[in-house]
Write a protein that binds this DNA or RNA. Structure first.
Lengths: 225, 225
DNA sequence: CCTGTTATGTATCGATTGCTACATATTTAG
DNA sequence: CTAAATATGTAGCAATCGATACATAACAGG
């Protein structure tokens, strides 16, 4: 039983605020990514030395995973479960995108989403971390899809709608906003993107749906430029 | 005058194919990112030793920038200039998204976009590379916006359309597709996302446009969950 | 007090990072 | 041929990486 976070009251007490140190580490990982954040930066931001970090969190990887957990629970990131609880799928997704636009452009905080950008490249050494973040993202995709499927059964949208495609569409927007935020996009711009994505709701959930033939001009012209 | 690529015919000739080695390096950077790709991996994939790499390309950073240049020129990535040349903005953007969906899911190639994912985190050491990739992306955003503005002046879309918002919307989709591809999305899924984004064209470029009041349900319900 | 337990600071560890010194090999110019 | 120029392979550079050994400090239970 490792005493990473258990406080038995025995021995010398911890001299730093574990939660505060974790929050500091989260910001570093958020800004630099998992591999880009060095132990030196982490320990300096957390105000502790490496042995304290390892005694309290176990390893860099475990610290990162705790930071991601904190990110997904605190208000730093958008609230995905609210998407499921919202009275309508449309309202839930709209709220998700709005909250993302706000969360990705907080003053004094890194831009974009820790879960979307934290570890995109599998370099071998970070395979486990990379896969875990991927699981977060695919889990979010499943949440979106299930909410849309429920909307289809409840009559909010037609049953002909391709829920998987619409879910991928909105998740793509949410991920794309992270990169736009990294590139300096303003909160107003991200909110405009969110609004545009919701303006598209009517088109995506129309009875003929995305499987319709409403793109005659687009992809048939694939001849030479 | 550094002889990185100039061939004067003097001295011992190069024993490897510079272009082929660059293509191999591009694949490594594409898969691992700039910082995630180590010299050991690069030299092994290129089939050369470090001194040959530095004699031919100058540095890891210069090699990466050449790889990015190659990526943006060859068919590996989508053709952004075709967006400008297409007869209509809608057809150009549709083609861009379709080509992206295909390019991000090529068999035997890394998933997603090198320019979108290659160096998202500024860790200090890679600041220059990070800024250069960002310049690529913001340049693409400008290309999209200018094409939409031209469409507005030519009557393809109403003048009331917020071209900057629509451009950010479609670039967000294109960036988001890279992350979806990284997470294992199939080519069919990405093509469905592209199609959904183009289905939204009518909504985004309707006379009332994205600034309309067509989201009464979405954001007014921001009360407690 | 003493013993056991846990945390902290210093000072590293071996491994890996990007990069290069150096001697040798292979070419052209004269 | 000789001399200059460029490339290659070996071997290793200083710096940094994540992670620890060790002695000491600060607590609880007895």
């Amino acid at each position: 039983m490792k005493p990473h976070d258990t406080r038995t009251g025995r021995g010398r007490p911890r001299a730093f605020d574990r939660a505060a140190a974790l929050a500091k580490a989260m910001d570093v990982f958020w800004a630099k990514g998992y591999e880009g954040a060095s132990l030196a930066e982490l320990t300096e931001a957390m105000g502790i030395n490496p042995p304290s970090l390892y005694a309290a969190f176990g390893s860099k990887e475990a610290l990162f995973l705790e930071a991601v957990q904190l990110y997904s629970v605190r208000e730093d990131g958008p609230d995905w479960d609210a998407v499921l609880e919202a009275p309508s799928a449309r309202a839930g997704i709209a709220r998700l995108l709005d909250e993302s636009a706000v969360a990705f452009t907080r003053r004094g905080k890194p831009r974009g989403c820790l879960i979307a950008l934290g570890a995109l490249h599998d370099t071998g050494a970070n395979a486990s971390v990379c896969a875990k973040l991927r699981a977060y993202r695919t889990g979010n995709l499943a949440k979106l899809r299930r909410r849309l499927e429920r909307a289809a059964t409840e009559g909010e949208i037609p049953r002909t709608v391709d829920c998987d495609a619409v879910a991928s569409f909105y998740l793509s927007i949410q991920h794309g906003m992270s990169i736009l935020a990294r590139d300096g996009a303003s909160r107003a711009t991200l909110l405009a993107v969110a609004r545009a994505a919701m303006d598209a709701w009517a088109c995506l959930t129309s009875p003929r749906g995305p499987e319709g033939d409403a793109r005659s001009e687009a992809s048939t012209k694939r001849g030479p430029v």
